[in-house]
Design a protein around this nucleic acid. Structure first.
Ligand code: MN
Ligand code: MN
Ligand code: ZN
Ligand code: ZN
Lengths: 126, 126
DNA sequence: CTAAAATTTAGAATAATTCTAAAAATTATT
DNA sequence: AATAATTTTTAGAATTATTCTAAATTTTAG
C-alpha cells in the first residue's frame, strides 16, 4: 500500500494509508465523500471530514482516483482507473462501470485550436 | 413566445415570458443560473434569485431546457434540445456543442434489467 | 369586481465543499 | 536522542449553489 502511495508522490501517513486501504481492496468502487466517512467510522478510523476531503482530492490529483461528477452537488471518486464509461442509475444515485470496449466511439470532431483531449466521458443515464 | 410556453404546459407569466425571451432568441446557449440573473439585470427585468431557479427548473422539467452538469456545484441550462454532445473547456468552465453526427457511437452495452435509457451524454473535456 | 388559485419573492435553511489557523505528527538536523 | 523545521490533520467557520418557507403579489375564475 505504501509503495502504491509513494509511486504517486503521496507520502504515506496514517490516515492516507487507512483511506487507501478502504478503497484499494481490488474491487472497483464509486464512493462519495460521505461513503468514505461512513466506511472509516465503521472501521473505527478516527478522522475528520476535512481530512477525507483533502485525502480524496489529493488521491484524485495524483491519479489514484478519478473524480466523476454526474449530478450537481455530489462527486464520486472512482477506483477504476482504466478507460471506461458509466451507467448512472438516477433513482439510486449510483454509478456502474461500462467496459471501454462495450461502446464503440468513432469519428471524433476536430478539436478547437490549441486544445487537447483530457478525457472522454460517456454517461448513460438509466 | 407564449405559444411556446403553452405548448409545454407552462403558463406564460411576466417573469417566465421575460426569461424565455432572454433564452430563446434562436441561438444555442449554455447558461448558468448566475448568467440568467445577470442577463435579466442587464435588461432591467426585476426578479429574484428564487424565481430564476424556479423558472429554469420548470423549463427543464417541461422540456424547454436541458440541464447539464459537468462539474460539481454548477449546473448549465442548454437551449439546444436536439440530440448532441459537448466539449467542456475546463479552464473556462464553458460548454460548446458537438453535433450528434460528429461522433459515432455504436455497440451499446446491454442494459440492466428493467431499465431504459434516459439519455446518453458524451462530454469531451479539453 | 371579488374570490380563489398560482406565482413571485426575500430571506432563512440546507448541503457540499473549502478555508483557516492551531494542534499533532512526521521528517530533518544537530 | 533531542530539537527544530516541515507537513499533515483537524474543528469549526466560511463559502457557494440551491431549496425551502411563508407572506405578498399577480393571475385566473366566477
Ligand atoms: Mn452515508
Ligand atoms: Mn456572473
Ligand atoms: Zn467507474
Ligand atoms: Zn449543448
Amino acid at each position: 500500500m505504501d509503495s502504491m502511495l509513494n509511486k504517486h508522490g503521496i507520502r504515506p501517513t496514517k490516515i492516507r494509508r487507512a483511506i487507501a486501504e478502504l478503497l484499494f481492496d481490488g474491487t472497483d468502487k464509486h464512493v462519495s465523500v460521505d461513503d468514505v466517512i461512513d466506511l472509516a467510522r465503521a472501521q473505527k478510523i478516527k478522522t475528520s471530514v476535512a481530512s477525507v476531503y483533502n485525502t480524496l482530492n489529493q488521491f484524485a490529483v495524483a491519479g489514484l482516483l478519478r473524480k466523476v461528477t454526474v449530478e450537481q452537488g455530489r462527486a464520486f471518486f472512482d477506483t477504476n482507473l482504466s478507460e471506461h464509461h458509466h451507467f448512472y442509475f438516477e433513482d439510486e444515485e449510483r454509478l456502474e462501470d461500462i467496459p471501454v470496449d462495450a461502446i464503440n466511439i468513432s469519428g471524433l470532431p476536430k478539436l478547437p485550436k490549441g486544445r487537447r483531449i483530457k478525457s472522454i466521458d460517456v454517461t448513460i443515464r438509466i
